Amino acid sequence: MRLIPYLNFDGKCGEAFDFYAAALGGTIVARMTYGESPICDEMPADSQDRIMHCQLEAAGTTLMGADGPPPHGGSTTCINVDVDSVEDAERIFSALADGGQVQMPIEETFWAHRWGVLTDRFGKPWMVNFLKPCPE
């Protein structure tokens, strides 16, 4: 399991991650716009160039982000829990959701075997991810 900060922006994700990569000496290993995604036809025309997901690797750590709107109760930052199995994803999601509020139930998506979003009982936003391999 890895805990990964996930930053949400309002149209500046690409610019911010280019800056972070340079400042931290890292590499952007994934960047997809809404227009490049499998759900591009479902997205408004003005969102096509916005970043759906960006991932930066630097010094053995990971930073992730996207252009909003934030699905986490309005927060612009959340913690992404990256796990290695469906069972771990479902167990951890259920535990964190106890007494909290689920924004996106944990389910399969085009990028993950399981993904869900919640706010815990203390008001902190979380995502739980069991990712599928990135396409080459």
Rank of each mutant, 00 (worst) to 15 (best):
V29T: 13
G60F: 06
F17P: 15
T27V: 15
T62G: 11
Y34T: 03
Q55Y: 08
A66K: 11
F9Y: 06
G11W: 03
A59M: 10
G35P: 03
T33G: 12
D49P: 00
C40Y: 04
R31I: 01
C13Q: 01
F17R: 14
R31Y: 01
D10S: 11
A16M: 05
D46I: 07
I4K: 07
Y6T: 09
I39E: 09
D10I: 01
C54W: 08
R31W: 00
G65H: 07
C54I: 15
Q48V: 00
G35K: 02
S37K: 00
A22H: 00
L7N: 08
A23Y: 02
P5W: 12
G60W: 10
G35Q: 06
A66S: 15
G11I: 05
G68V: 04
T61H: 08
K12C: 06
A30M: 10
G35I: 03
P44F: 01
T61G: 06
N8V: 12
A30V: 08
G14T: 02
F17C: 15
Y6G: 05
E15M: 05
Y20Q: 10
L7Y: 01
M64A: 10
F17I: 14
D18P: 09
G68P: 08
M64F: 11
Q48S: 00
A21M: 01
M32W: 04
G26W: 00
I4Y: 02
M43F: 11
G14M: 04
C54P: 05
F9C: 03
V29P: 02
D49G: 12
F9E: 00
A22Y: 00
Y6V: 07
Y20M: 11
F19E: 11
A21R: 01
D41V: 03
G60C: 05
S47F: 15
G65Q: 12
A30S: 12
G11C: 06
F19N: 11
I51E: 06
A59G: 08
P38C: 09
T33F: 09
S37E: 00
V29E: 10
T62M: 09
F19Y: 15
P5K: 04
M52G: 10
Q48P: 01
T27A: 14
I28F: 04
I28Q: 04
G65I: 06
K12T: 12
A45P: 01
I51D: 08
K12F: 02
A21E: 06
C13A: 13
A59R: 08
P5C: 04
L63V: 14
C40H: 13
D67N: 09
F9Q: 02
Q55R: 14
P5M: 01
G14E: 15
P38Y: 10
T62N: 14
A16P: 05
P44M: 05
V29L: 04
A30L: 09
A22G: 00
P44L: 03
G11Q: 03
A30C: 07
I28N: 10
D67Y: 09
L56W: 06
A59V: 02
H53V: 06
P5T: 05
H53I: 02
